[in-house]
Design a protein around this nucleic acid. Structure first.
Lengths: 186, 186
DNA sequence: AGCTAAAAGCTAATAGAATTAGCCACATCT
DNA sequence: AGATGTGGCTAATTCTATTAGCTTTTAGCT
């Protein structure tokens, strides 16, 4: 039995991929193992269990989002940056609905939690977007939470198929970006 | 063995209550049965299985939200209505985080799906809120989606403990209501 | 009141998933 | 070559969902 070259990152990537393909609820240890050409118990040599695996997926997701955001925001400011950030996050969720959904039940355990650390980078990008507007420093936290809530809510509902097809979701998305931009401009 | 007087509604209520108490992931058939003074297999005389139970919880949640919203909006309009709606939904999620979370993975199967029907009543209430503003009819759908996304996103993040404690979440909530109100006023 | 039949519980059995224990081969380092 | 630790495997355990089949209650009818 030749070695399979597993490590936590490889397993996490496989599980995240499966979540996108078959839905988070159907990602079983056995399925992940099969995808990697290995038996289920072997996974435990690298990860502590299902809870650990989910936490790692969450870190992966938030890290990927942070990277995508940083790339997308290069050289942009103001409304341009807002739009780029919104589109980037939405695209990520639409392309990876499963892994995104599997991070939902997770709350960081503290400031040192890797999920919180990776999340911090996403927040930094959102802060960068807001820096392009003239916002009272005391209100920045609120504006940040507004963006987070809106982006997350929209993405979650869209990924779950919650919007009726009748009216174009793209159009609503553009309308929302406009709405926020105008509001932040005051 | 006297009869326990079970029916789908009683089982659904028990499961929803447990979801709030122990978290959706820990709601097991056995636990629900125990709470009702019955053995697990007996539940299957009334519900089809776990998936069915979750769908029923979703209907319960959306129905309860719709009722609460309708009550809260009685005799209110404009900013007053917006604020009442937002507070009502937020309060519901904070009080029932478990049952709310267990409805997240659910997408209505079609217009006849009871989840969609109950959801329609919530949307009607949101439409009523928007009717207090002077919005181009062509934009109403977009504004509705904005409200849905924002309320859902904020509630989901707060329920999951996603906001840092440092800055008062209540204050951010009020700020967001103001932001939306000003934007809708155009 | 007594009969019948459907409904509602129960116990026992099945099946699937996570996790643990314990064994053995491979790979690495000298 | 040989010692050693890591990574994989099989077997066993536990927990949960679900199904099968039996028994009692209860509602409806005469």
């Amino acid at each position: 039995m030749p070695r399979a070259g597993l490590d936590p990152a490889v397993i996490t990537a496989a599980a995240a991929g499966l979540a996108d393909e078959v839905g988070p609820a159907n990602v079983t240890m056995g399925l992940v193992a099969e995808r990697l050409g290995v038996r289920a118990p072997s996974l435990y040599k690298h990860i502590a269990g299902q809870a650990d695996l989910n936490r790692r997926i969450a870190v992966l997701v938030v890290t990927e989002m942070g990277d995508a955001l940083r790339d997308a925001l290069q050289g942009r400011a103001g409304r341009d940056a807002l739009e780029a950030a919104a589109r980037t996050l939405r695209a990520y969720v639409v392309e990876h609905p499963g892994r995104y959904a599997s991070t939902l039940p997770l709350n960081p355990e503290g400031p040192d939690d890797p999920v919180a650390v990776a999340g911090g980078r996403v927040l930094d990008s959102l802060a960068a977007v807001l820096s392009g507007y003239d916002i009272d420093p005391a209100d920045t936290v609120h504006a940040m939470r507004l963006l987070r809530s809106l982006f997350h809510g929209f993405a979650a509902i869209e990924a779950a198929g919650g919007f009726e097809m009748d009216t174009d979701v793209d159009r609503s998305f553009d309308w929302m970006i406009d709405f926020i931009d105008r509001g932040l401009r005051k």
